[in-house]
Design a protein around this nucleic acid. Structure first.
Length: 894
RNA sequence: GGGGGAUUAGCUCAGUUGGUUAGAGCACUUGCUUGACAUGCAAGGGGUCACAGGUUCGAGUCCUGUAUCUCCCA
């Protein structure tokens, strides 16, 4: 084995093998309690970014862990067709050829999109493989494929026939660039610095009214002005009319509660075709609507002299004209939230148009109950409030889009009798009058109208089948907060409505990956880190592990390239631990490493040292905690647990202890150590596999823990030790405490060495006086390993008593001394001990103050009081020992 | 305007029901070609837990308010 792990070839090799062997494939007919995760389908146009890397790593950890636990595990992958985004991409390519989609016509254009998808649509799923995602690829689905399209049509028809889908003229968010309606969720509000223009409207009585507006160009569509009925400033105007400047149209003055008296002048213009609130006012007062814009954001004929101008050019010109006529009172800077298209960032225009909507209230009720009752749980829990707030104030969903790429709305009209109906299959004749002149709605459905069915459409719904029976409802949904409304809430609604139960039990919401200045990663800022660059530089395992190590549950994470050294270094550490083990394994014959790695260890209790027991106990603790952390979606804690166990417990302490035995001549002991280390190392690899799948598989084979046909990804997840094993091996808290205290004393000895500037390699003498005789016996048994860890030539172990005139350091079990006759700097040593004394005194003072407090003794739980008393006596003892040490040293002073 | 999150070491962050003198990684200082590993080893320095009140025997942790940053909704 090389000194450094080279992940490149290794990662590609194992992934190809795993996939070819079908290890990720799930079968409903197989045994095992099902465990199912549905991937949040990335856009087919997408390329892997850090958000995907985080999202997919979390899912893969869950899936690999559950699979090792023996669950019948399915992680179903796929992509969505991203209607607007994909159409934009293909249109852009066409534009380069000087063509538009209209030049091609609908059929030919769609053909182009499918060709594009075939050529480029596989990018992101290939990248997910590089990350190590253990998806069931043969089940990969696409929202536009046949089965999913059938689901969409089925759902549309059902909702339509139940009256939950309707068509109407309402104000929608219109993107003038994408040329389509958007849902409320697709219009992103951004704080924008604009102006509030105060404009004079002449009143019929000869006076003027001043209205304030942020979008002056829409005044061309005004059909009234409104005041608050309680606003006494304007009572006299009720029933009057005003003249619309520039166009001269006569407008009514209406009184409506909607008007905020404090905003602007307390008079607002009413433009029903271009503002949702105005639209409602218009309905209440029976006002006409005048649409002044084309779909592309240019002014139409109704705009009179401004017809043909772009909306923003019109604004400029119109303001100038008003000013020229003396009708512009003032212009105030005004900060307000402006909707922007979530696909192209164009300023959204509220616009009256004929669209299809889903009536959401009836669907929301069951979805609210699903979360309130705890059937669906969010982690972190705070997102439940966000979810409930949205679902409880649900608004109807605009589902029609004026584009071509997507599921075409399955609504038909008869050319003869004007009958309207919805049908899954394209009809050949009108069901009412049998006429054959039929037209279908031109629009397509919102992409989310297919995504919200994802948890069951991907399993074959509406056809009942074994997969649906086995895997629905799924278990964990892993996603980002941005799409709780878009996707999570709607999926719960669809699941409750069409499957009779919500689609998953847990929703884990992870944070956003940001740059090291806390900014969102974005193309325009150029601050993105490409996960593939990290994989190329450090490996997929490093990316995964580092990301988990630095991401707290549900919190945003800040990354930069350097952070990924964590995973790389950890990988190298494990690699070298394996190298060390292998070195010694090769010197030993007759042991079946595979059996030792995969079955309960056969250890001879008579030959176990306390260090062995300590490692076994710590390993067991790690197994238990690891499982508990994963159950709670605490991936960072899990990563840290493994990092500490492998690096600190196994490498820093046990490997160092083991060297003495492994390089020694006692064959039986050497074998025992190798059995133990194999068990612990194999358990560690298994626990780590979900985080670092490639390295662990590589080592699983290199170490001889598996035959060529076997894989770690199907190795059974480590189980806690049974009480009988614990008892047989003599694991106990007192053993653990002893070894911990021994580590403390070794640390104290190393500090002494460092204080005196003795090079680490120099073999020196130590003297240890233990507090108890029993400890001296234990130390005598551990003499060789103590010497190794302290790099000591000899250690003189004495039961009880204290050494005189040597620098020493105090530990729980005793005092360790450095016999440096003649070399001691008494003054420096006194300073050091004084420091220790001050520290201990401070500690002790705090505890004594607590114990002197009657309230504490009376009210704190007895065990807490007891703990403090024990600490007090221990510290008192330490003080006394330190003082005696100081005294014997001071006697050396000249 | 409503709601959420954050504020802990130079940096990035842990700290799970209130109970040792608050931890880790990185960075920093010192010393090391230690028979797995310099992508490493050992030892160290570094924090009045944003601020002000309150509850409590006891607050980084609970409550109220303030400030700053950030996100979502209108």
């Amino acid at each position: 084995m090389d000194k450094h792990y080279d992940p490149k070839a290794v990662e590609a090799k194992w992934y190809a093998w795993w996939e070819a062997q079908g290890f990720f494939h799930a079968e409903a007919a197989r045994d095992g309690e099902p465990y199912c995760v549905m991937i949040p389908p990335p856009n087919v146009t997408g390329i892997l970014h850090m958000g995907h890397a985080l999202n997919s790593t979390v899912q893969d950890i869950l899936v690999r862990w559950r699979r090792m636990e023996g669950r019948n595990t399915l992680w179903l992958p796929g992509t969505d067709h991203a209607g607007i985004a994909t159409q934009n991409v293909v249109e852009k390519a066409l534009r380069k050829e000087g063509k538009s989609r209209r030049d091609l016509g609908r059929e030919a254009f769609l053909q182009k999109v499918w060709e594009w998808r075939k050529e480029y649509g596989g990018t992101i799923v290939r990248q997910l493989r590089q990350l190590g995602a253990s998806c069931d690829w043969p089940r990969e689905r696409f929202t536009m494929d046949e089965g999913l399209s059938e689901s969409v049509a089925e759902v549309f028809c059902r909702l339509y026939n139940e009256g939950l889908i309707y068509r109407g003229n309402y104000i929608v968010n219109w993107c003038p660039r994408c040329h389509t309606a958007l849902s409320d969720e697709e219009s992103e509000h951004q704080e924008t610095q604009g102006n509030l223009w105060h404009i004079r409207y002449p009143v019929s009585d000869g006076s003027y009214l001043t209205v304030a507006t942020t979008r002056p160009e829409t005044m061309l569509g005004d059909t009234a002005v409104a005041v608050n009925p309680k606003d006494e400033r304007y009572t006299h105007l009720h029933g009057c009319t005003v003249t619309l400047p520039l166009l001269g149209r006569t407008l009514r003055v209406v009184a409506d509660d909607y008007v905020d008296r404090a905003f602007g002048t307390g008079v607002v213009k009413i433009t029903p075709a271009h503002d949702p609130n105005d639209f409602q006012v218009a309905q209440r007062h029976d006002l006409p609507s005048v649409n002044v814009m084309h779909g592309d954001g240019t002014m139409n004929e109704a705009a009179g002299p401004y017809a043909g101008m772009d909306r923003f050019a019109c604004r400029k010109q119109l303001v100038a004209d008003l000013e020229a006529q003396g009708l512009l009172v003032k212009v105030e800077p005004h900060l307000h939230a402006v909707g922007h298209c979530y696909r192209c960032d164009t300023v959204v225009e509220p616009r009256l148009s004929l669209q299809w909507f889903v009536r959401m209230k009836p669907l929301a009720d069951a979805a609210i109950e699903a979360v309130r009752s705890g059937q669906v749980q969010f982690t972190p829990k705070r997102w439940e409030k966000v979810y409930l707030d949205w679902t409880e104030n649900i608004r109807d969903w605009c589902i029609s889009r004026q584009i071509w790429w997507g599921h075409r709305i399955p609504v038909y009209w008869c050319g003869d009798c004007r009958h309207e109906w919805a049908a899954k299959q394209a009809p050949t004749a009108c069901p009412k009058c049998s006429a054959t002149a039929i037209t279908q709605d031109e629009d397509v459905l919102d992409t989310w109208f297919s995504s919200w069915l994802w948890p069951f459409s991907t399993l074959g719904w509406p056809h009942d089948n074994a997969d649906l029976q086995k895997y629905y409802p799924t278990h964990d949904l892993v996603t980002a907060s941005e799409i709780i409304f878009f996707w999570v809430a709607r999926m719960i609604m669809a699941g409750c409505k069409f499957m009779g139960q919500p689609p998953f039990r847990h929703v884990y919401i992870h944070g956003t990956v940001r740059d090291d200045q806390g900014r969102k990663m974005s193309k325009s800022l150029g601050n993105s880190i490409d996960p593939l660059d990290i994989i190329a530089q450090y490996s997929a395992d490093s990316l995964r592990f580092s990301l988990m190590m630095i991401t707290a549950t549900g919190q945003d994470v800040q990354v930069n390239m350097d952070k990924f050294e964590i995973g790389r270094n950890f990988g190298t550490k494990i690699w070298n631990a394996a190298r060390f083990l292998l070195l010694h394994m090769e010197k030993t014959t007759g042991l079946d490493w595979r059996a030792l790695a995969t079955t309960a260890p056969q250890l001879d209790p008579a030959h176990l040292t306390d260090d062995d027991r300590h490692l076994l106990a710590t390993c067991d603790e790690t197994v238990r905690n690891m499982t508990a952390q994963l159950e709670q979606f605490r991936f960072q804690d899990g990563a840290r647990l493994l990092y500490d166990f492998i690096w600190s417990s196994f490498c820093d302490w046990y490997v160092e202890y083991a060297k003495d035995d492994l390089y020694g001549e006692d064959l039986a002991r050497r074998e025992q150590v190798l059995r133990l280390m194999t068990h612990v190392f194999a358990s560690s690899l298994k626990l780590l596999h979900p985080y670092m799948p490639f390295l662990t598989e590589e080592l699983w084979h290199t170490m001889g823990y598996a035959t060529a046909e076997e894989t770690i990804l199907l190795a059974p997840w480590p189980r806690p030790l049974t009480p009988s094993m614990t008892a047989a091996w003599g694991l106990s808290e007192s053993v653990t405490a002893y070894v911990d205290a021994k580590h403390e004393l070794i640390g104290a000895g190393r500090s002494l060495r460092a204080e005196y500037g003795i090079p680490p390699a120099k073999q020196i003498r130590y003297v240890v006086h233990t507090l108890e005789a029993g400890t001296a016996e234990r130390f005598a048994r551990d003499q060789r390993s103590l010497q190794a860890l302290l790099r000591a030539e000899t250690i003189e172990i004495v039961a009880g008593g204290e050494a005189q005139g040597m620098p020493g350091a105090i530990g729980k079990l005793g005092t360790i001394y450095l016999p440096l006759s003649g070399l001691i700097d008494v003054r420096a040593e006194m300073t050091r001990i004084q420091g220790e004394l001050t520290k201990t005194r401070g500690f002790l003072n705090g505890i004594e103050a607590k114990l002197a407090n009657d309230g504490f003794v009376a009210k704190a739980p007895p065990q807490v009081v007891e703990q403090q008393r024990a600490k007090r006596s221990e510290l008192t003892e330490t003080m006394a020992r330190l003082e005696r040490l100081a005294k014997t040293l001071s006697e050396l002073a000249p």
